[in-house]
Amino acid sequence: MNCPLETRENAALLVSHAARELAPDMAVRLDRHVAQCAACSQFIERQQAVWEALDRWRPEPISPDFNRRLYARIEELDRQASWWHRLTSPLRPMPARHAMPIAATAMLLLAAGVLMDRSRVPAARPVQAQVEMLQPEQVEHALDDMETIRQFDRAMRSDSPDPKM
């Protein structure tokens, strides 16, 4: 095999090899090459030294009250959501099982009304119905998620350009 250090793309194989990520057959082929190539051998040695140095960096212990604090925030979130739910529930659409017979009845009455008096404007408008189908928290989440993704993508774009990434 050609020396992987000849191109950056292949040199990345040596990084994967040091991380033991390669498929066994590729690892064997690379080992054979490394055994007779001083440059690759040195590369692997240095990469493994980095790997071991990073292993020394143990994480800090987690605060014992981490879960308690999180669940308190979740509880608060649920409390606010249920308050919001109660506040807006009169505006919400009815569950489908209740709404369907009512809608069918309304359609019949509407059809009868149209037949009786064609000059009248229909009472129900589809656009309004669609707007009502959106739950307030769905809109809130969607806006929040859209903002998150927008910020993230902006962060990715504004990060250092390719050579310095």
């Binding site: 950056r8 793309e9 040199a11 990345a12 990084v15 040695e45 240095r46 990469q47 493994q48 030294a49 980095v50 071991e52 140095a53 990073l54 990434m165």
Partner: peptide, 19 residues
């Protein structure tokens, strides 16, 4: 892969002496 290669290149220059 390119990001990682460059990152490890920097880390090798700074940390490989620890071997």
């Amino acid at each position: 892969k390119s990001l990682l290669f460059r990152a490890y290149e920097t880390l090798r220059a700074r940390l490989a002496y620890m071997a």
